[in-house]
Design a protein around this nucleic acid. Structure first.
Lengths: 192, 192
DNA sequence: CGATTCTTTGAAAACAGTCAATCTGTGTGG
DNA sequence: CCACACAGATTGACTGTTTTCAAAGAATCG
């Protein structure tokens, strides 16, 4: 499974064999069965996590017990709770597997060492965070501008692969609408 | 106005006189009158921008001509379009002054030089982006979880200063609700 | 299969948006 | 200094969208 990470890295930056080895040496492999937790609310998150296989979701649970999905991650995406990682405080989020998944974990301290010593890796990581932020802003834009139909349409365009692998009620949760509303949108879309 | 930036930096990291000088040397001061643009949709954004004084807003305009505010920035906040900066593509956003403002601009190339040469500055910048991302995720959480009342409440708690300096209809735009709805929420809040 | 989870459907209620009119405060020019 | 214009905020009546609740159909998995 380290192979997936290697491919990902070499597609974007140039690394010597030693550099690549030091990255791979720092990672541990964690297999998750469907529904198994990677992180539970209240725990401190201490890793950088790369999805080598499968799909995971990050979500909160509100006072009424409803889940709200903050993000999904699939192959070649990074996941985890950056906020808890940065502050050292307990996480407000849960992360679990939507499908069986394989996650590559790099502990915080080792990761920091890697970014310090390997400049291209550091730049890659910075770019990942910046892109995540940009995507997040765009999602906010859609959320404050559009109605349920537009939010769903945007999701389909942006993440067509995810739409096929994630149950509908989770997509609804991600969009901030009810499963019933999503079902009705799909019905009315189908008529065209 | 460089003084504001200096205070901001020294409060968070240690810098030698030369390092500080190299940062200040790279910055130019831009004064904005209320309503004046810092960035217009379609232009490429090439700076890192620090707000030394005043308030600015970043927003989009949709097909129907409605404005949607993506973010505000006030003293000691960074602003700009990171997406355009990163990709070199034309911006989808507008940025203008809500109040008269003073913005410190550091051109992209110079900024990159600074982050390369001054490690603490680099770490500070990385932390800023990470915190921005975390804040963005929290905003998404509120947006997909809560109704209009909760979104407004969250805004008041999180940005009490902004709430006093920004007109109500802009807060409504930021929250993704109409000015009328916000007015009604305030009325019903006042009754308690 | 049988049980559970997911999706669909319907009807009613809650919520937010639209449109139009009025009110309020601020600043400008006469 | 007043009067008027203008932008922003409020209010009411109405419309439209989304949620809620309840029930019935699919699909999936052990």
């Amino acid at each position: 499974m380290l192979e997936v990470l290697r491919q990902y890295l070499l597609k974007q930056i140039t690394l010597s064999d030693e550099e690549l080895a030091s990255i791979e040496e720092a990672t541990t492999v964690k297999k998750l069965r469907k529904n198994q937790y990677l992180l539970q609310e209240g725990d401190v998150w201490r890793y950088n996590a790369f999805v080598a296989q499968g799909v995971v979701r990050t979500y909160t649970i509100d006072d009424k017990g409803n889940e709200h999905i903050i993000s999904f991650a699939m192959e070649n995406w990074w996941t985890g709770d950056r906020e808890s990682l940065l502050t050292g405080k307990p996480s407000k989020y849960n992360i679990d597997a939507v499908e069986d998944a394989v996650i590559l974990l790099i502990p915080k301290e080792k990761f920091t060492g890697l970014t310090k010593n390997i400049q291209p890796f550091n730049e890659l990581v910075t770019a990942v965070v910046e892109r995540s932020f940009a995507a997040s802003q765009q999602r906010i834009n859609v959320n404050i501008s559009g109605d349920a139909v537009e939010k769903y349409q945007y999701f389909l365009n942006r993440y067509p692969q995810l739409a096929l692998r994630v149950p509908q009620h989770m997509i609804a949760s991600y969009l901030g609408i009810t499963p019933e509303t999503l079902s009705r949108i799909r019905k009315s879309n189908a008529k065209k």
